[in-house]
Design a protein around this nucleic acid. Structure first.
Lengths: 360, 360
DNA sequence: TTGAAAGCGCTAACAG
DNA sequence: CTGTTAGCGCTTTCAA
């Protein structure tokens, strides 16, 4: 039964310090410290006495003080763009997976505005804030990269690249190219693309490029009418954006027969627009997304799977490696997206896709 | 152009300290400190000189040192059970929403095992780790509650209650009761319940109690055969668990005509089992879930909506209030779950439900 | 095996 | 308006 040292009502108790323990145990703070860390070099009797006092007092080392003395934080920072995106949720789960094997915890630095990852990055880089940072979906200018390097903080990029740092991403061009090529091979003639803004971040941009390349290689010029950018939601992947874009396509004099959406989220919105017009996928218009979020499987959406969780896990593993060995040469990991043919693309005969098609 | 003070290759640069700045600017560290915080009481010329030097050096205050001196961390801790649950993802989004208006960042303490929130809670409570903690879905024993109180850390509970602390939850009994009552009113006779373990955490338990109460009030004894606990996945809400449970129900001599699942995730698994047996909802068996996760809307799953994001947001707001005023009397907020009738319950005629039913 | 003392980087009275 | 000084709580040489 421990008696709080101070407990005036409405005064939150003040935790005991190493001095309190040292005093009550008749030893110096150095000894207490040794007991709690440096397990060796303490007489058994002393150790037990210290431990007993510490327990009675409810002592626990003050982390900020430890951090300062040890020049570390045991914290990793994740700088995440502001978007209700399933991608980030999954990547973060993966990061947590990898964290289990370490003594680090994760602090989230969520960008306050659409694209303002920059401020949060600077914050995360401040000395004494974290021991390393994972930066998601943010392209680094050379100036920024130099700033990061100057800060001395280990950093890993997810979804983008820079020669200074470890990076982990998926081959967006290739995935998009693959999907469109399959649609072409299956005989679709007018394949539209739903994307975000032309100046969108790399992943979306590269998916568009993959789409364009597949068309060109098939001898089809890119029809600007069939590439619909989102004006209302220029950056994030939003269902509403997909919905609007699909409405736009449905208003065209000649309908597309297939749509490759930049993300599953947008594809879901497109699907909804289709339904609201009394149309269905793939019978009237085929639809393919990108990401393979949880919902996609349940609605039978064909898509390109991105190993989000693995990417997050690997990001943290790379970061931990770099903290341990700052001088390693940066690595670049690129995962290949996997085409998942379900019911909405009309090119599948897999049982999964059939089951989904029967769904409701 | 700043010249790194130290830059032996393979030695990460050491960030400059307040002493470096003070020295180069010919002032004391106190003045530098004033420039960076206490905006007032510094001559303009001095301020500018300091700022110039700081900029040239790339100085940024060391956060751990600040934390120690100021006795704060500007960090909030979220202690989260280990589960791939959409509930937590949404709640955390809400927490982030509220964080925007503050100077705090969020650190995640994810439990390493199924129910081992306890260790992470202790960790989060350590002095100097965070300025407050949000504890998700973990019931606090009186001993634990006392421990928390003794730590002096402000704490807010989400999904559970304790008289010592602010808490935020949803009325699980009431929601379940409501759903089952509606199913009964619509004429369903054999209503099954898919849940987790009998000794599961409060939310799942209370949903079962609500189910039982609705039946009893309708003069139906609870048929143990129709309440299926998950043995393989006793705690988390998993699709596999829902799948297994539904298979069990489908093997019964007499089928249930409706199923109330403990969570949407399990309901999705049940839906899948149904499909795999060539059956459909609601024609063969009606299904209602709980939570209203993102996927539910897209597959037309009827469910009880929990305002997850709002709950997270409120949790942080409450925590910030408590940090500011530790002596406030604890509040208890209980949201009412909202019944969302989509296609799988067979009781809806809303256009949303119809659209979803046509879906694929 | 233990203690004294310096230091981690910053802040905040208190003087001046 | 600015400098001196004493912490914040812990770790870690260096001696004893």
């Amino acid at each position: 039964m421990r008696v709080p040292l101070i407990n005036r009502s409405h005064t939150s108790p003040v935790p005991p310090t190493i001095y309190d323990v040292a005093e009550r145990a008749n030893v110096s703070t150095a000894t207490v410290s040794r007991v709690f860390n440096n397990q060796t070099r303490v007489a058994n009797a002393t150790r037990e006495r210290v431990l007993k006092v510490a327990d009675a007092l409810g002592y626990s080392p003050h982390i900020s003080a430890q951090n300062l003395a040890l020049q570390k934080t045991s914290l990793l920072a994740a700088v995440v763009p502001f978007e209700t995106d399933f991608f980030y949720a999954q990547v973060m789960r993966g990061m947590q997976d990898a964290l289990f094997d370490s003594d680090f915890d994760l602090t989230i630095y969520l960008a306050p505005e659409k694209r303002e990852t920059k401020g949060q990055l600077e914050r995360a880089l401040q000395p004494g804030r974290a021991d390393g940072v994972v930066l998601l979906s943010a392209e680094l200018s050379d100036a920024q990269a130099e700033m990061v390097r100057a800060s001395g903080q280990p950093l890993v990029l997810v979804d983008t690249h820079h020669s200074f740092f470890d990076s982990i991403s998926v081959d967006n061009d290739e995935g998009a190219y693959d999907a469109v090529q399959r649609l072409l091979a299956h005989g679709y003639q007018r394949i539209a693309h739903i994307t975000v803004a032309p100046e969108a971040p790399a992943p979306a941009r590269n998916r568009r490029l993959g789409y364009e390349q597949a068309l060109r290689e098939a001898g089809q010029p890119v029809d600007p009418e069939l590439v619909v950018y989102s004006t209302s939601y220029p950056f994030g992947f939003m269902e509403e954006a997909g919905y609007e874009a699909m409405q736009h396509l449905l208003a065209l004099p000649e309908l597309p027969d297939a749509v490759f959406a930049c993300s599953d989220v947008q594809a879901l919105g497109a699907l909804q627009a289709l339904r609201d017009h009394g149309l269905r996928a793939p019978d009237d218009v085929a639809i393919v997304g990108f990401d393979d979020i949880h919902t996609s499987r349940h609605v039978g959406l064909s898509t390109l799977r991105q190993p989000m969780r693995e990417m997050g896990k690997l990001a943290v593993q790379k970061l931990l490696q770099r903290i341990a060995q700052p001088a390693r040469t940066p690595s670049k990991t690129v995962f290949a997206p996997e085409y998942i043919a379900r019911s909405t693309c009309g090119t599948a005969a897999s049982s999964e896709a059939t089951a989904a098609a029967i769904a409701l």
